[in-house]
Design a protein around this nucleic acid. Sequence first.
DNA 1: ATCCGCACGTA
DNA 2: CGTACGTGCGGATT
Length: 879
Amino acid sequence: MTDSGKPTLLVVDGHSLAYRAFFALPVDNFTTKDGQHTNGIYGFLSMFVNLVKAERPTHLAVAFDTSRHSFRTDVYPEYKATRSESPSEFKGQIPLLQECLAAMNVTVLTKAGVEADDILATLATQGAEQGFDVLVCSGDRDTIQLVTDDVTLLYPSVQGVSQLKRYTPDAVVEKYGLPPANYPDIAALVGETSDNLPGVPKVGEKTAVKWLTQWGTLDALIENAEKIPGVVGGNLREHLDDVRRNRSLNALLRDVELPAGPADLTLQSVDAQAVRDIFARLEFKTLLPRVFEAIGADAEEVAASAPPAVVAPPPAELDGPGLATWVAGHTGEIALTVTVAGGLPARIGVATADAAAEATWSDVVASSLAEWLTGSAPKVIADAKPQVKALRRAGLRLGGLAFDPVLAGWLLRPSFPDKGLADLVDRYLDEKLPEADPTQLVPETEGATAGQLSWYSLRVAAAVRAELPAPLATVLSDIELPTLDALADMELAGVAVSHEKLSSFSAELGARSETVAQQAFAEIGREVNLGSPKQLQDVLFEQLELPKTRKTKTGYSTDAAVLADLQESHPHPFLDLLLQHREATKLRQIIESLDGAIGVDARVHTTYVQTGSQTGRLSSTDPNLQNIPIRNEESRRIRAAFEVGSEFETLLTADYSQIEMRIMAHLSGDAGLVEAFNSGEDLHRFVGARVFGVEPADVTPAMRTKVKAMSYGLVYGLSAFGLSKQLRIEQSEAKLLMTEYFARFGAVRDYLRSSVEQARIDGYTETIFGRRRPFPDLASPNRVLRENAERAALNAPIQGSAADIMKIALFRIHDELRTGGLSSRVLLQIHDELVVEVASGEWDDVERIVRDRMGDAADLTVPLDVQIGRGANWDIAGH
DNA sequence: ATCCGCACGTA
DNA sequence: CGTACGTGCGGATT
């Protein structure tokens, strides 16, 4: 009931709102384990329960279209003819949505030959006559004509389905300048592209409203069409038939014969068990209580049909031999958790599906469990790497790692930012992992113990496994888990870094940046913070009156490219000094953070985040050792501070040359590109010769630079615009370059196109080894989002395959060094480069292993070329 | 204390 | 209007 005391009737267009939800919600988050897409259903129901909760209707119905065919298509066969077929992924959701609504005891109305909006119009008209306050919820603008003092339209805003705009008569007048009854007149003149109803050319909303205001009605306007001046007047006269047709089609039927009238649509409690069943099938968890709350359900029934609360079995506190007996008594997978304090094991817990046990770590526990821990008995560990490291520090090398649900969860949804066990428990079990309240000194809520964490890990593992497609399960077992093992050793090993070299360089840079800053201040006559883009904008664009540059969200850019451009067009000493200052302070900052990370063992231990990228690459943090400068001579002094450890003989660096272009050659099968790599000729020289039609020997440096930029740009989805900017050439020249390039290497373009098309169909891309990355935005109606997704989708299989290949090479080298009894060890991975610390007398063996395992990590149609370097520090070894 | 945007280092 | 990352600063916010 509303304040007025009148009953409220809510009528909803199910089809149009579910369709909007379908495009608004990422499909990869809304797919059941059977592959049924549910994003439209979920989005609609979520909006629907919010709506019912907020509006408290007393009467309720949802209408659907029956098919594309209606009386409108009978009259005008072209009606909606240009509208593309709605995707099959969407159509399949409609019957399921109707099933949900039936379980919720919500009346679903359809009628052959009319559209859902005609049903809404009929119910709204009857409702208003019978004394209801009527709320119409539809995504079709034609329903604006229904608005009266008794009928309010709720229309989804562009921001999303959950935001509904309220159209009262006043709101319609405010937006369109005319009352609701006139809206179809405006629409008839303007036309509706999505319905394939062309209007009067050059007439938009503004003109239509002006005309209608002047003449009062559409009929009057048509009668006086001769008097309308200008080109638009002529257009109107020529398209009068279109206007009349539009007006007849956009009038909604208000007298459709329906099986139920407003009074029959009383809001009823939901059938709790039926809702529970269908939601379980669709894997909706959080929606259930929201439905019960918003629409109401019999409390006893809800309680009776509720599943039993899930409670972790109380873990048994055992000693070392007790734990050994416990694990020996269970066959099959056991989940394991080692809590870590100060890098060493603190507590250890194990669990099966219905029992758990745990102990405080001790030498006795270690020796009792050693055989099981190091053996091949299968173990499930969530976020295994830190635990594997702690065990290694305690002298135990874990064996039998069979599954890590955190890694598996990442493989399924690499874009998800939260990936810990707690997030998985939330997402896959719809439960909360007990967490100690960090705000309390004496926590009121206990955190989960090691045994309980194991129990949760095992259940989460089962849930994640059920969703994991076979190719991803293979990537997990054949690539990620072996890689995890290698990474643990690399992190433990660390890399020796010279504090002496760093600190003297830092002091030099500090002095230089101070000098440069003073010179810069002298140029502008005042002291500013050179590290503040905001203050710099004031100096550059106000004080020095330099031309404004590229816009950013908060002002104008002062980045290096912009400053270089300015220096060229408006030379000023301040610009160069600023660039010098930036360079010096940036280097110094990198040095300082690196220096601060040197441990008591004089080595730096980074952490590789195995779930840190969406493509399959690793990332490196605390500190990031994957972005140590190399581009200029001075910055290489930082690399020179990475030294061979005192017990070792030398560093070895090994990097793949042009691995991404080689993968491109393999995936595209382009004969020219394949030949380029098999010919042994320099890639860019070979490509340049083809593109510019000269002999390889006659390729000039300028030509080489151009094709090189083009080749690399391809991998990223570069446009002619981007290429012209990068090379500082005219767009027309860039376009010509692209045309010439593709004329010679056409299969490359064909591959890139087809790979994005395939991704649009599948919803994800796939690497050579089966790693997937979902791309829901490829179906987005938002052009920016869609085009960004297209470029990323183009790049993902290439970057991802390169990452797969490097991981395979990495763990094979790691394993072969160990099984070969060599002391040499891999220290760093920088995407396409490895740094190995070589023990005395092992160079030849190590070099061979590294070269062979990197070379045969994948069987491509082109060879994998590996460059090896040797030296006492990373700078020398890297040459 | 915490978050965001900018700028910039790497592959 | 080129992909993938992490870090540190300034500045605004709490």
